[in-house]
Each structure stands twice: as C-alpha cells, then as structure tokens.
C-alpha cells in the first residue's frame, strides 16, 4: 500500500528514522523548555537587604600578659642589688628560680632583666620597660615577627574583624625562658560513620 512504509520484503524505510528524529527534537525542545522555566523561576541571587549602618573600624587592644606567681614579685624583695647578684655568666638557677628552665639560646638573666631595677626589662638602648610591655624587648631580636604580629597574622586575635580587636602579646604563648610551644591535650575524635546511631524522633518523644 502507498501509506505503508514496509515494502514487499518487509524492509524498513525512512519514516522510522523520521520518528526517531522527531522524538529527539521533541526531547530537545522539552529539555530546553524546562531549563528556561527553571532559569525563569530561579530566585534572584540576592535579596534586597535594607540599608544598615556600617560598623566602624575599631582599635587594637593589647590583652594583659598572663600573671606571674605572686611569690616572685616584686623582684627587688630579693634582688636589691646587695644581697643577691645573678652574676654575669650562666650558672645553675637556685632558690625561687629552681623551676625555671632557661633554654632561650645562650641568654642569661641580664640580657633581658635590668640588674639595678629588676622589676623592669632593659632594652638594647638601655631604656627600661615594664614587664607588661615585654613585646618591645622580644621584637628587638625577633623583628621579623613584629609586622606580622601587628598585621594580626602571627599570634592570636580575638574580638571583631571590624571593630575593636584584642591581641595577645608574645609571652601569652611563648614562655620567654624556654620559648618553643609544648604539645597540649586535644579534643576527642569524631565518631566513625559506623558508630553513629540514628533515630527518627527526638529522645523525649519516643
């Protein structure tokens, strides 16, 4: 018959390919349509937030250094320049300082503590600074750390990223007499997937 696409031998003819093409075309149209719909109904990437006052840039605040044990202070109780002399060369530490482990290069007391006024630290230019400003002493040698610390990259910063921020000083993390940090206790590990118990309701509602 004229309308039949099978010939006498039963072989197939172009219309079946036409079918395939038609289906493919339809699929393309449908998929494209879905994408258009999706794009159209995708919410805006931002919502209109009402204008709000901007937070002003704050100040850098130095946090106080950890407290030194009371029985050490004031230093001139013992180091009055007469009864106790540390001496210019390293030797065994004794009395109150038995526990102090001195392992900071080849440094000895006098490199940092003033001999006459031991409550203060002595900088290289002979000026005295109180113990709270010890960072001024540390950065005489460790000068490379100073800009990093000021920038907030070396050391811990707390508070605000915009607004007042608190800096800790060197001695907060580094014990000045033996500066390398020591290992600390960590928090427990996460549970492995096989250890996690699932529930379908909160504990109180079962």
């Amino acid at each position: 018959m004229a309308g039949d696409d099978h010939d006498l031998n039963g072989d197939r003819h172009p219309p079946i390919q036409l079918t395939i093409w038609a289906v493919i075309a339809l699929a393309v149209v449908v998929i494209a349509g879905l994408f258009t719909v999706r794009l159209e109904y995708q919410p805006e990437t931002t919502r209109d937030y009402p204008p709000r006052p901007q937070i002003a840039d704050g100040e850098a605040i130095l946090l106080p250094a950890p407290e030194v044990a009371d029985d050490y202070l004031p230093c001139n109780d013992c180091h009055d320049g007469v009864t106790r002399e540390e001496g210019p060369v390293p030797r065994e530490l004794e009395f109150e300082h038995e526990d102090t482990k001195l392992a900071h290069g080849n440094l000895w007391c006098r490199h940092c503590h003033d001999a006459v006024d031991p409550n203060n630290l002595r900088l290289a230019d002979a000026s005295l600074v109180p113990l709270e400003d010890s960072w001024k002493l540390c950065t005489q040698c460790h000068g490379k750390k100073l800009p990093e610390w000021r920038a907030g990259v070396h050391g811990k910063v707390t508070g605000n990223w915009r607004g007042d921020r608190e800096y800790v000083t060197c001695v907060f993390c580094h014990e000045p007499h033996s500066p390398p940090t020591v290992p600390i206790e960590g928090e427990p590990r996460p549970r492995r997937p096989e250890e996690i118990v699932l529930r379908t309701s909160s504990p109180g509602e079962e």
């Binding site: 050391g155 811990k156 910063v157 707390t158 508070g159 605000n160 990223w161 915009r162 607004g163 940090t181």
Partner: peptide, 18 residues
C-alpha cells in the same frame, strides 16, 4: 563585625579572617 567562633577558639592563632 565579630570573628567566627573557630577563629576565637584556636589556641595557636592559626586561623585568620577578614
């Protein structure tokens, strides 16, 4: 304007935010 909680908790100051 505050720093993230993990930033505040880090004991060695390894976390930076801005």
């Amino acid at each position: 304007g505050r720093l993230p909680a993990c930033h505040e908790a880090c004991p060695v100051g390894a976390r930076k935010f801005g």
